[in-house]
Simulated scan of single mutants.
Amino acid sequence: MNRVLLVEDNPDDLELARLAFARGRFGTAVDVARDGAEALDYLFAPGQEPPQVVLLDIKLPLVDGIDVLRRVKSDPRTRHIPVVMLTSSAQDRDLHACYELGANSYIVKPVDMEHFMAAVNKIGAYWLGLNLTDQSS
């Protein structure tokens, strides 16, 4: 079964993303972290099976998404995990910082509900359907 870690503190975006994955029929378990600290605990838990992809917001409580990305991409245990920044920030400095730290993709959340769900569905189709990952890491 595919596994996604969705790191999102907005309950509306969280539910829309879950619904989009369910409708996409990717055979996906969506694990949720509602802040950056919870995401790091999940990703670095001993024996934790890594997700196929992490969808990561930037503006998060406790530890922001950029710091989570920095930790994930700097650690040999997790740097192979694809990280898609799914955020409301369209600021050039955030975009640049995320790609400098190794983000695999940067997507600005559509404001409209249907467009948001379509974007999440496309993310799932690519990262869970088309993209091959090295699971030996």
Rank of each mutant, 00 (worst) to 15 (best):
L95I: 14
K109S: 10
I66S: 05
D94Q: 06
D67L: 10
L40S: 10
R79Y: 13
L5S: 06
I66V: 13
A103F: 15
L16M: 10
H115G: 04
V68C: 14
R3P: 03
V4G: 03
L5F: 11
N10D: 14
T78R: 14
L130N: 11
A118M: 10
A103R: 08
L86C: 08
A22L: 14
D13T: 02
Y42C: 08
Y99F: 15
L69E: 00
A39D: 13
V53F: 07
M113A: 14
D57W: 03
A33Y: 02
S74N: 11
I58V: 13
Y42R: 06
V32T: 09
K59L: 14
G47M: 14
G24M: 11
V68W: 12
E15T: 13
V63P: 02
L101K: 09
Q48A: 03
A22S: 14
G65S: 09
F44Q: 10
A97M: 08
F116L: 10
D57H: 01
H96T: 15
Q52N: 03
R77Y: 05
V72M: 07
G36C: 08
V84M: 08
N121R: 11
K122H: 04
R3T: 13
E8D: 10
L132E: 15
I123W: 09
D94G: 02
D75F: 00
R34E: 15
L128R: 05
G124Q: 03
G36E: 11
R3G: 00
M113H: 10
N10I: 08
V120S: 04
L5I: 08
T78C: 13
M85W: 04
A20D: 04
L95C: 13
E38W: 01
S137M: 15
F116W: 08
G24C: 07
M1L: 11
I58E: 14
V72G: 04
Y106H: 14
I107F: 05
E15F: 13
V30W: 06
R71T: 12
P82N: 01
I107S: 02
W127P: 01
E38M: 09
M85A: 11
P51K: 07
D134H: 12
Y126W: 14
P82Y: 00
S88V: 14
L5Y: 04
Q91D: 06
V84H: 03
A37W: 02
F21L: 01
G102Q: 09
R71E: 11
S136A: 13
R77G: 11
A119R: 07
D67R: 04
R25E: 05
D75A: 01
C98L: 09
D64G: 02
D92L: 04
P46Q: 06
F26N: 00
M117S: 03
L14N: 03
L130P: 00
S105D: 05
H96Q: 07
R34T: 15
